[in-house]
Design a protein around this nucleic acid. Structure first.
Lengths: 150, 150
DNA sequence: ACGAAATAGTTGTAACTACAACAATTGTAT
DNA sequence: ATACAATTGTTGTAGTTACAACTATTTCGT
């Protein structure tokens, strides 16, 4: 694939910064496509995977819905409905909090942990695709992305 | 906002490369949100904007649907339906190609060009947010993203 | 010329997103 | 205590995406 120019057949950009914006969006869409493929055999979407990983991070403690939203990569998706999907598959458990009945506590189940374990196994391979960068470059890239967001 | 760690409240990543993947997805989602806000006053979505910009690139020549798909940032979205939305707003014109009736020719209209002109005017301001990077860094970032995609 | 294969685009569908309105519960001020 | 505000989560909706099946047209092989 190579250059962005080839990928979207566009030869000129107004500025290097505009190109950065488009390149980030394009690369993210490309990564997202790989993630969808990777998770499809397991019957979950990348957003659902993200929620599961967040819950594993706090395991064995519960998180509230607001905690999950706060940690999600895509803050706009609807945590209520994602959690409900996961619950239907038995990957998470939810319970109204006893001390504050507005809140809902959510845990990952063993079945959820098992599923993540399987996905971890093939994550290696997926991350290989990013190996065009050295570790030092990856750090540099992370720093620049952080700086873009202010 | 600053670091990815603060943005998604996650302190540890398995590797710098995994962090790159998440950082790209997160930054893209952040950018997309800004784009949605920027385009909302004009009644179009970022994907619709992308199609308009592609058509402006070939103006005054027409493009076929397949050409548009090939140039889109998000290859997965459905060009047929995006074009139909734009046509309903009078921003593009479409016509079955006379020489090959399988194909559909699509042009941007004057109204579409005017709308893009207005958006150009406020793009400056939007791109200011990326000014945390120098031009040299932006070039470097573009190079790294291109290399990630292989 | 004829049928099979390739090409170009459309449509159906289930799931997801963006966003606003809504309900329920708790906190606070007087 | 009571009413008002703030917090937490849910639901409705219109639009979008992911993907596969479908139609229509053209091209190719024989």
């Amino acid at each position: 694939m190579g250059s962005l120019e080839d990928a979207i057949l566009q030869r000129k950009f107004n500025s290097e910064h505009e190109k950065v914006a488009i390149n980030i969006l394009f690369t993210a869409s490309w990564l997202e496509g790989m993630n969808i493929q990777r998770m499809k055999p397991f019957g979950i979407s990348p957003q659902q995977f993200n929620v599961l990983r967040i819950l594993r991070g706090s395991y064995p403690n519960a998180l509230r819905l607001a905690d999950i939203t706060e940690r999600m990569i895509d803050k706009n998706s609807n945590a209520t409905r994602l959690v409900e999907k996961l619950r239907q598959k038995g990957l998470v458990k939810r319970e109204v909090c006893k001390h504050n009945r507005r809140q809902v506590d959510i845990w990952i189940t063993q079945k959820g942990l098992d599923l993540l374990g399987q996905l971890d196994a093939n994550a290696e391979e997926y991350l290989e695709t990013l190996k065009g960068l050295s570790k030092a470059e990856a750090q540099q890239l992370n720093g620049m992305l952080d700086r873009i967001r202010g």
